[in-house]
Nucleic acid binder design. Structure first.
Lengths: 120, 120
DNA sequence: CTTAAATATGAGCATATACTCATATACGCG
DNA sequence: CGCGTATATGAGTATATGCTCATATTTAAG
């Protein structure tokens, strides 16, 4: 496990979060911890879309999609803009991109490691 | 919102996750979406520790801490090594550091933005 | 004003999961 | 072996949350 070596090499000391901050961080992770919400975020990678488009693309029900969009908006991950009858949602927090990429990356490592077990 | 401009500037095209991968990503986020688990991860930033030390440091019950440690280990975020009577846990996935930093960063932006509302 | 379309939301149900208590398991020691 | 310590786990409960159905709200059009 060569990757563990990087743990001690860090220029800026890591901040100790207080209770409130810690719960906010946990909340943000939890919001991203639902498959349907990730599907919505992924659908919005291509740009802003209105609710019905997201319903069609994800295959969810209108009510459910609306709820998830609300959750994501309250977490400041998406932004909401009404245009006539339709409501458009858009990714408001660009750090989401890096976040998803990073998680995907470490998961790929996990999978590669598992594959190694079978390959010998 | 100048930050939204970076969305379209990306060299490598973003991958569309299939259903299985998407659920794995969601699962990873969900595992990080619990305050007590974040507290444990934070406690382990300083290096490997045994269960009782983590129980003392976090103020949780032994049973609960043990369960969370199991969850984190199954997610390949921590690694487990038994030494005699004690079991030591350690951060196994260094990407956790960047992940936490990024979330903290975007949360600070949220907070700063909220503060701006009051400052005018 | 009536109607229709797009979205949001109240209420209820189902399920997941965090927590606790008690107990099991694993290990070291005398 | 018998005992004490460290950790894990089965079982049960409480709570959160995802989902659905029905309905409310908002806005545009006729």
């Amino acid at each position: 496990m060569s990757s563990a070596r990087s743990l001690s090499r860090r220029s800026t000391p890591r901040v100790r979060l207080n209770e409130g901050a810690l719960e906010m961080v946990a909340r943000r992770f939890a919001v991203l911890g639902e498959p349907m919400r990730l599907r919505l975020i992924q659908a919005l990678f291509a740009g802003k879309k209105h609710v019905n488009a997201l319903v069609a693309e994800t295959g969810g029900t209108q009510a459910n999609i609306s709820r998830h969009l609300q959750t994501l908006t309250q977490a400041h991950i998406l932004s909401r803009q009404k245009e006539g009858l339709q409501v458009f949602y858009e990714i408001a927090d660009p750090s989401i991109f890096q976040l998803c990429d990073q998680v995907c990356g470490s998961l790929q490592q996990d999978i590669a490691r598992q594959a190694d077990v079978f390959e010998g």
